[in-house]
Write a protein that binds this DNA or RNA. Structure first.
Lengths: 251, 251
DNA sequence: CGCTAGCTTGACACAGGTCAAAGGCTGTGG
DNA sequence: CCACAGCCTTTGACCTGTGTCAAGCTAGCG
C-alpha cells in the first residue's frame, strides 16, 4: 500500500496530466479540467455495471481512479474485453446527441468518476476551448490506434506476444498519466479477466505469466505489475507508440 | 457480369443510399451528396496503396465502387485486416486537422473514389447540414459497432462462427446500400485475403468454406457470394445488427 | 496452350483449450 | 487468534482446432 500510494499521481491531477500530455493547454483549460476533477464523484464498486449495451448514454464520465472495461458476451458466456479504461479515460464522451452504448461497461476495481457534461460541450463547440477540443480528438485517435493493436493481438499474435504487447500498452498509457514509474504500476485484474482481454483461457494466461516470470521479464502478482525487461517485451510484442498527429512524433 | 450488373445499384446513387438510410436528409443535402458523387474520381487499381500508415491524410475520399481495407502487418509478414471498406464508406474522413493515418489502406479491387473535402467541412460545422452531420456520426458509430464485432470474432469465435458472422455483416452493410439483393452480392476477395480478415490460415478458410458449401449455407466462388441459409449463419455467428441511436431500433 | 495465381486436399504438428484437483490467500465470524 | 469459506492461482494430463507443409488441380490470361 505504501508503494501503491507513492506510484499513484495525486488524484486531483490525473485529468490535467492526461490531456496536457496530448496538446499544450492554457491556464483556462487546465483550471476547467481541475474543476471537473474536483466535483463530487460517482462511485462504482468492482464488477458493477457502469453502462449497459444498448442503453442511452445519459452522463459522460471521466475516470479519476480505478479501472473499467468495455465488454461483450456471446450467448454461451464467452466474453471478450474490448478495451481497458484507465484513470483519465472517458466513458460515453461523445459529440453526438442521444447515442446508445455499443458495449457494456463494467468496473474492474472500485471506480471513481466525475460527470463531464461540460467536456462534451467543449468538444462539440470546438471554438470555446480549441486546444482542449484538439486534445480530445487526439485522445480519440489514440484510442483507435490501440483498438487496432488489440485486433492485431487477437487475430495474429501468439499468446506470449499478445500479453507482452498488452503489458507494454498499459505501461505506456499509465505512464502518460504519471501512474507508472519505471515500469511499476497497480494492476487490479484477475487472471480470468486478463484472459478475457487477450482472448485466451485462464490456464494459458497463467502458463504464459509463469514463463515471463521465469525469464525475469515481469514481476507480477494480483494487484501489482513490474515490467523488468521492457526491451524483451517490446520486441516480442512489436509494441508501437501511437503516432496520430503531424509534426509530433514522440521520442 | 450480367448478374453482377443487375445487383449493383446505379453507381450515381451509392452515397445517397448510404446516408439516407441512416438519417432522413433534405433535398439540399441529397443534391450535395449527388454533387460529390458526380465529381471526377480517383482510381486505385487492385492491391495498390490508397494511404500509408503514419502519413498525413490529405484528401478525404468516398468510395463509389470497389472494395478496400485497412490493414497492419507484423515484421515477419503476418497481416491483419482491420476492416473492409465498401462502396459508400469513407476513407480518412475526420473532424480533426492534420491527422495521421493509423493504418495503411489498400484497394482489394479496382476502387473509384470521390474527393470529399466538402463533406469533412459539413461534419465539422455541424450547423450547415445538421441531418447530414448526424448521418456521418451514425456511420461512425456503426463502424465502431462492427469494429467491436470484429474483436469478438478474432478473440472468442471459432473459425466457422467468425466466417458466418462476417458474411452476415457484409450482407447487411451492402444491403443498406442497395448492393446485396436476396443475400447475393459481389465478393472480390481471394481466400488469402479473407484469411487475413478473419485471422485464420488460408487452408483453414478453405476448409470452412467447403463445409458451408456442403451444408448448403452459401454458394461461393471467387467474385460472388450467395448466402443460402442466412438463418443458420446468423445463429452460428450470433450476428447482431447495429443499434446506435435512441428511438430507432431497426426491425 | 502454357503460365501463374488461386483453389483444394491430405498428412501431420503444435499452440492453446479443457478438465480436474490441489494449493494459496484473505477476510470474517466464532 | 484460529478456522473456515470462497476466490484466485497453479499444475498436470490429455484433447482438439487450427496451422504448416507439400502436392495437385483449375481456370483465366497473355
Amino acid at each position: 500500500m505504501g508503494l501503491s500510494r507513492s506510484v499513484r499521481a495525486p488524484s486531483t491531477d490525473v485529468l490535467t496530466a492526461r490531456y496536457r500530455g496530448l496538446e499544450p493547454l492554457n491556464m483556462h483549460e487546465i483550471s476547467f479540467l481541475r474543476m471537473i476533477e474536483s466535483k463530487p464523484k460517482a462511485i462504482f464498486s468492482s464488477d458493477s455495471r457502469i453502462l449497459a449495451e444498448g442503453s442511452e448514454i445519459s452522463t459522460p464520465l471521466l475516470i479519476v481512479s480505478g479501472w473499467a472495461c468495455r465488454v461483450r458476451s456471446l450467448s454461451d458466456g464467452r466474453r471478450q474485453i474490448m478495451n481497458l479504461l484507465l484513470p483519465g479515460d472517458a466513458i460515453g464522451l461523445c459529440q453526438r446527441s442521444r447515442p446508445l452504448a455499443v458495449t457494456t461497461i463494467i468496473a474492474l476495481s472500485t471506480v471513481r468518476a466525475s460527470e463531464a457534461f461540460e467536456l462534451a460541450d467543449v468538444w462539440r463547440d470546438r471554438a470555446r476551448m480549441p486546444a482542449l477540443a484538439e486534445a480530445l480528438d487526439i485522445a480519440a485517435a489514440e484510442e483507435e490506434h490501440f483498438a487496432l493493436c488489440h485486433m492485431m493481438r487477437l487475430g495474429r499474435q501468439t499468446a506470449f506476444e499478445r500479453m507482452a504487447n498488452l503489458f507494454m500498452e498499459i505501461d505506456y498509457r499509465l505512464a502518460s498519466r504519471g501512474m507508472s514509474l519505471g515500469g511499476r504500476f497497480p494492476f487490479p485484474l484477475t487472471q480470468e479477466t486478463l484472459a478475457d482481454v487477450v482472448g485466451l483461457s485462464v490456464v494459458h494466461v497463467n502458463r504464459t505469466l509463469q514463463q515471463m516470470r521465469r525469464d525475469n521479464q515481469i514481476d507480477f502478482s494480483r494487484g501489482r505489475m513490474a515490467i523488468l525487461d521492457s526491451e524483451a517485451l517490446r520486441l516480442a510484442g512489436e509494441f508501437q507508440r501511437p503516432n496520430v498527429t503531424a509534426g509530433r512524433a514522440d521520442p
